[in-house]
């Protein structure tokens, strides 16, 4: 059945413990007729379902391939709530449900032939990793790639080896900031906005993808605007309570926008006058 409102079965091929409370599931959609769901774009999300417990929205991280060349769908999850904890308990060989893809992803076409600036804050920023992976997989379509990642504590950094790998690639800048840095942290200690000031940006040909806590995204966007980046070249990935994922249940409303359908990735000018308003 091809009803997108119904979940489909997904087999857990592998489970990777990233940090104490963050894990990645590598999934196979067992019904080949459902492989259209693998057209998921960086920035979009799926609803993951644990049998008998419920669903949660999880942004897409990557599509990889197993040894046989079969597509593998990766989702990175932080276990904080009832459903995510129940998903965390599952082992390889278990099955979950999956509905999606949903929402608007990063503006990939618009970003082509531009410099890409990915600014992220916080733990496990999968929506941003998905676009970085996409850009490196299609390297000739993009100009310079700037990657800025901020964490509260240096120990919170996820996928450190990936960042180190990206840092060694040509035409790529990687900068890291930790509010609190342990001894031996080779990068900056302080805020992401301080790093943005140091970026050798070409504002007229840069597209910004920003993902993290709202105050951090707002401060980053305003700093980028001060550095002459046009506001409509700045895109943010928003987060709200998403239950239906189809713009009906009302929980994810951000002013007039339904984040699950009109977002989660949205251009900054659309959000600017609402970000920072308490309780919106």
């Amino acid at each position: 059945m091809n009803n997108p409102a119904l979940p489909t079965n997904a087999l857990i091929l592998n489970r990777i413990q990233e940090t104490e409370d963050i894990f990645t599931l590598q999934l196979r959609l067992t019904d080949p007729r459902q492989h259209w769901r693998l057209e998921i774009q960086p920035g979009q999300f799926n609803m993951l379902y644990r049998f008998g417990v419920g669903e949660i929205p999880i942004s897409f991280k990557a599509i990889s391939q197993d040894e046989a060349g079969e597509p593998v769908l990766e989702h990175t999850i932080r276990s904080v709530g009832r459903v995510s904890r129940a998903l965390a308990d599952l082992k390889p060989g278990s099955h979950i449900g999956l509905r999606g893809p949903f929402g608007q992803g990063w503006p990939l076409r618009r970003a082509e032939h531009q410099d890409l600036c990915v600014v992220t804050g916080g733990l496990g920023c999968a929506p941003a990793v998905s676009i970085i992976e996409h850009a490196f997989a299609n390297r000739d379509r993009y100009g310079h790639i700037h990657i800025i990642q901020g964490v509260k504590h240096s120990a919170d950094l996820l996928w450190r080896s990936r960042y180190e790998f990206w840092a060694q690639q040509p035409d790529t800048t990687v900068m890291m900031a930790a509010d609190v840095a342990a001894p031996g942290w080779p990068w900056y200690s302080g805020r992401v906005t301080e790093l943005i000031k140091r970026l050798p940006l070409k504002p007229e040909r840069t597209l910004v993808c920003c993902c993290g806590p709202e105050p951090m995204m707002q401060a980053s966007a305003e700093q980028l605007i001060r550095q002459q980046v046009p506001p409509d070249a700045i895109w943010l990935s928003m987060e709200r309570n998403m239950q239906c994922a189809s713009g009906h249940c009302g929980h994810c409303q951000f002013g007039a926008d339904f984040i699950c359908r009109d977002g989660p990735v949205m251009p900054y000018p659309r959000l600017r006058d609402r970000l920072g308003l308490e309780g919106i």
Binding site: V53, C244, C249, H251
Partner: peptide
């Protein structure tokens, strides 16, 4: 008013 919540009833 259109808001609804979704829940699982095993």
């Amino acid at each position: 008013c259109f808001c609804f919540s979704e829940q699982e009833v095993p």
